[in-house]
Design a protein around this nucleic acid. Structure first.
Length: 483
RNA sequence: GCUCAUGUAGUGUAGCGGCCAAUCAUUCGGCCCUUUCGAGGCCGACACCCGGGUUCGAAUCCCGGCAUGAGCACCA
C-alpha cells in the first residue's frame, strides 16, 4: 500500500503552480520540418498537464521567418502530434495574425515604449553593449508613429529600419537591453506571399499571442529564460497578466541527426531517403523504427521539468520501448550473413517453437528440415560452432562440427553443460534485410513463418527487436529498433 | 567580458532541516528460471561538486569558490 503510493508519486510530474481551474497551454513549433525527438518533450509535457487539469492545448505555428519555412511542415507536424497522442484543441498560425502584432506595436510606440530605429544594426548593437541609447530612441512619439506607418507600407528598404521595444538601456544583463520587435523581410512567405514586409520577431508575436490566447502556463526550454525576461516588459507595459513560466533544462541528444536544415540538405542531395530516414532523430524515423509513442511519453514524464540540463539516453528510451513491445512481438529466427551446413545422420528432422515463449496459445512455428537437411547459421555463430565443436540448433537438434555437420541427438540437457543454443534457418526461408540505425543494412535469411505473421514488431532472437516494413515471399524488409 | 540558471550513482529521477548509513528506473556484475545474450525472479555495484557558516542536527537553509549550460541575433 505504502509502496504503491510512493511509486505513483515518482512516475508523476510535479503539480503546476497557481492553477485556477482549467489551464490553457501551448506548443509553438516553427514549421521548418517535421518534429524530432527533442521537440517531443515540450509537446508531451504540455499535453500531460492539460490532461491533468483540463483546459486546452493550442498548437501555434510560428512561421514568422519565411526563409526557414518548409511548406509541408505544417501537415507533418500535425501528423507527428497525432501519432504521439498529443491532443491539440486548437491550431493557430502566426502568419494569419500580423494585424494583431502591428496594432499592439503601434500602441506600444504611442505609449512611448517602442521606437523605430533606422540606425545601422551593428552600431545599434554596439551602443547597447555600451549602455548608450541610439539617436532614434528618444525621438518624439509622433515621428516614431510616422516612421512606423511608412515601415508597414514598405517605405523602407531591407535593413533600413526596425521597430524596437524599449526595456532598460542600462540593464546589467546585456541580453535584456532593448530588443527588436519587427523587421523587414522581402523573402516571399509560402502562405502569404509578399503581402507583408514587416515581420514580427519571436519575442513580440509570442507575447501577444500568449496573452490573446489566454495562456495560463508556459513550459519551454531554458534557452528562453532571457526571452521571458524581455517579454515581461511587454506584459508590464500593457498591464497584462503574466502566465506562469517554467523553463526546463536543455537536452543533449547524442548519436543522431536532428538539425532540420542538415536533414533537408541531405534529402535534397539524395543521401537520406526522406524525413523518416533511420539515421535521423525525427519522430517519423523513430516511428518507422518501431518506437512506440507511449515509450516517448513515459521517457519525458520520468525526466520531469527540472531546469537542469540533461543527457538524453537512448538506452533508457529503448528499455521503456522494450517493456511495451516485448509481450506483443512474435519471435523468429534470423540468420545474418548465412553460412550453409548440411547435416549427416539423424532421421527426418522436425521441430517446433512457439511464436512467443510466454504465450504458447498464439501458435507455433513448425519445422520440417527433412530431405537434404540443409541449414544456415549466421557467420558469427558458424565461427563459434567451429571453435566449440558442438552446438544446439534451438528447437531442432544438437550437431557436431564437420563438413557436413553431424547429427548429435536431441538431448536438451547438453545446454546445462555449457553448449550454446543458436538460431538457424532451413532451406525454406526468406531473404531478409534489416536496416540499421547507422544507415548500414544486415542481409540474411529469416524463417518463412514470418510471412504469415501479424503485427509489425517482431523479435529476431538474439539479434534484437525489429519492425517489419515489408513482407513478401521475395524478401522481408525490417528496421532495427533495439536489442 | 556581462547576465541568468543549474549542480544527488554511467544516465535520468525521488527526497528539500531529523524517518536518508539517500528512492525508483535504466546500466553493469552475479545467481535462479528459461532450448534467445528477450522476458521474469533474487542479490550486488556505483552518488548528495568543494569550502566555510547557521543549527542539538544539513543532501536539504545561507555565503564563497568551482564546474556546466544558456543568452547578449533585423532566428525560433
Amino acid at each position: 500500500m505504502l509502496v504503491r503510493e510512493k511509486k505513483e508519486k515518482i512516475h508523476g510530474l510535479p503539480d503546476l503552480e497557481n492553477v485556477e481551474g482549467k489551464v490553457v497551454m501551448r506548443i509553438a513549433p516553427g514549421p521548418s520540418g517535421p518534429l524530432h525527438i527533442g521537440h517531443t518533450r515540450v509537446a508531451i509535457l504540455n499535453d500531460e498537464y492539460v490532461k491533468r487539469y483540463g483546459g486546452k492545448l493550442i498548437c501555434r505555428f510560428e512561421d514568422t521567418n519565411p526563409d526557414k519555412i518548409e511548406p509541408d511542415a505544417y501537415d507533418m507536424i500535425k501528423e507527428d502530434l497525432e501519432w504521439l497522442g498529443v491532443n491539440i484543441d486548437e491550431y493557430a498560425v502566426q502568419s494569419e495574425r500580423f494585424q494583431y502584432y502591428y496594432d499592439i506595436t503601434r500602441k506600444l510606440i504611442e505609449m512611448g515604449h517602442g521606437y523605430m530605429c533606422t540606425c545601422d544594426g551593428d552600431e545599434w548593437r554596439k551602443m547597447k553593449e555600451e549602455m548608450r541609447p541610439c539617436p532614434c530612441r528618444d525621438l518624439p512619439v509622433k515621428e516614431n508613429l510616422e516612421r512606423f506607418e511608412r515601415f508597414l507600407a514598405g517605405g523602407y528598404g531591407d535593413g533600413e529600419a526596425v521597430a524596437v521595444i524599449k526595456t532598460a538601456i542600462d540593464h546589467p544583463n546585456p541580453a535584456i537591453r532593448d530588443f527588436v520587435a519587427l523587421r523587414l523581410v522581402r523573402h516571399p512567405h509560402p502562405k502569404t506571399g509578399t503581402k507583408y514586409v514587416a515581420y514580427p520577431m519571436m519575442n513580440l508575436s509570442v507575447t501577444i499571442d500568449d496573452h490573446l490566447m489566454g495562456m495560463t502556463h508556459v513550459i519551454r526550454g531554458k534557452d528562453h529564460l532571457n526571452n521571458t525576461l524581455r517579454q515581461e516588459y511587454i506584459y508590464d507595459y500593457l498591464g497584462w497578466k503574466k502566465p506562469v513560466f517554467h523553463h526546463y533544462g536543455l537536452v543533449n541528444i547524442p548519436d543522431t541527426v536532428l538539425k532540420t536544415s542538415l536533414i533537408k540538405q541531405s534529402i535534397r542531395d539524395g543521401e537520406y531517403t526522406g524525413w523518416d530516414d533511420v539515421r535521423t532523430g525525427t519522430v517519423r524515423a523513430l516511428r518507422r523504427r518501431g518506437i512506440r509513442p507511449e515509450a516517448i511519453r513515459r521517457y519525458w514524464v520520468e525526466n520531469g521539468i527540472k531546469p537542469i540540463d540533461i543527457q538524453f539516453s537512448w538506452d533508457n528510451l529503448f528499455a521503456m520501448n522494450r517493456d511495451l513491445i516485448d509481450d506483443k512481438a512474435d519471435r523468429y529466427f534470423f540468420v545474418a550473413d548465412p553460412v550453409r551446413y548440411d547435416i549427416e545422420g539423424g532421421d527426418d528432422l522436425k521441430g517446433r517453437a512457439p511464436l512467443h515463449p510466454d504465450h504458447p496459445e498464439r501458435g507455433w512455428r513448425e519445422y520440417h528440415v527433412g530431405g537434404y537437411k540443409t541449414v544456415y547459421l549466421s557467420e558469427a555463430d558458424s565461427l563459434m560452432f567451429s571453435q566449440a565443436g558442438k552446438v544446439r540448433l534451438k528447437d531442432l537438434c544438437n550437431i557436431s562440427y564437420g563438413t557436413p555437420a553431424v547429427y548429435d541427438g536431441n538431448d536438451v540437457s547438453i545446454l546445462k553443460e555449457g553448449v550454446r543454443a543458436i538460431q538457424w534457418v532451413c532451406g525454406e526461408s526468406v531473404r531478409a534485410e534489416v536496416l540499421m540505425p547507422d544507415g548500414t543494412s544486415v542481409k540474411g535469411l529469416v524463417e518463412k513463418a514470418i510471412l504469415d505473421g501479424k503485427g509489425d514488431m517482431v523479435q529476431f532472437e538474439r539479434f534484437g527487436f525489429v519492425r517489419v516494413e515489408r513482407r513478401s515471399p521475395e524478401g522481408v524488409i525490417c528496421i532495427f529498433a533495439h536489442r
